[in-house]
């Protein structure tokens, strides 16, 4: 935990350097590099199978990259070694497309269990912290409900609370709204927007181009295991850009009948 007397080291908070990964003889990530500054939100878009989820898992070292390294606050994940990689992971919050809540635990215990098992916080304190985090994502009063009793949007908010409780330095979000019914997407996006405005550093895979372009300074387009385009949304999503990003996003927008450049997030 950083104290105010020790200023954060200069440079980006997250630095991904030349990460490659092959699985089953297929090259999924091909020397991917990117960096995020403190408080920054970057959006990763691109076709499925392009390597986005693999990249997030490699940043988290849930999948060890074959080559390259990930630095968080200047600390190399590779140098942490197998034993200490868990403390590296604790500092990175991960949000999954299908929530991955623990089925057998109530919302409150879903949030509290990692505090107890990993951070060794006493039960009472952990539950109190869990209650606070659930309130933060608008789920006061739902503490005792189990995943099977929650809507998709509520489940995703529990999973966000679960990640936040670990005080991560950065959050990785892997299509957090893709498994949700359209009317439930807004409540999750609102939480993400609040987090971003509160200064949380985030890397988010999403197809919500409109929402993303409103919040982010930079869109990264990923295809065939590489980041092939990057730039501010206004530039990449302009029709004049003739970018692969525009071409890809316009296919999404055709469905909703909107122009990607004009896309704006749903009102709060």
């Amino acid at each position: 935990m950083r104290t105010p007397s020790s200023p954060p080291p200069p440079g980006p908070l997250l630095n991904v350097v030349g990460v490659s990964k092959s699985l089953g003889g297929k090259l999924l990530l091909d020397r991917v590099s990117l960096s995020l500054n403190r408080g920054e939100l970057k959006v990763l878009i691109g076709p499925s199978g392009g390597g986005k989820s693999t990249l997030l898992q490699c940043i988290h070292f849930l999948l060890a990259p074959d080559e390259g390294d990930v630095f968080l606050d200047g600390v190399s994940a590779r140098e942490m070694g197998k034993k200490n990689i868990r403390s590296f992971r604790q500092e990175i919050g991960m949000i999954f497309q299908d929530f991955n809540l623990f089925d057998h635990l109530s919302a409150q215990n879903n949030v509290a269990i990692a505090l107890r098992r990993v951070k060794k916080i006493p039960k009472k304190e952990a539950l109190e912290r869990a209650r606070l985090e659930l309130r933060r994502v608008g789920l006061s009063g739902k503490e005792e409900l189990y995943p099977a009793q929650l809507s998709g949007g509520q489940k995703q908010r529990v999973s966000i609370a679960r990640a936040l409780a670990m005080d991560p330095k950065i959050m990785l979000l892997d299509e957090p709204t893709s498994a949700l019914d359209p009317e439930l997407i807004g409540e999750v996006l609102n939480v993400i927007q609040d987090l971003s405005e509160g200064g949380m550093t985030m890397l988010m895979v999403t197809h919500q181009v409109g929402f993303a372009s409103h919040l982010t300074e930079e869109i990264l387009f990923m295809e065939n295991g590489r980041i092939t385009e990057s730039g501010p949304p206004a530039l990449l999503l302009g029709e004049a850009s003739r970018s692969r990003t525009y071409e890809f996003c316009s296919k999404f927008m055709e469905i909703s009948g909107r122009d990607p450049a004009a896309a704006r997030p749903s009102s709060k």
């Binding site: 898992q57 988290h60 849930l62 990175i92 991960m94 999954f96 809540l101 089925d103």
Partner: peptide, 15 residues
């Protein structure tokens, strides 16, 4: 059981 719950636990720092 979907591997997801196991992955989620690892991502929180569980062994």
């Amino acid at each position: 059981i979907k591997r997801g719950q196991f992955l989620a636990a690892l991502s929180l720092g569980f062994t």
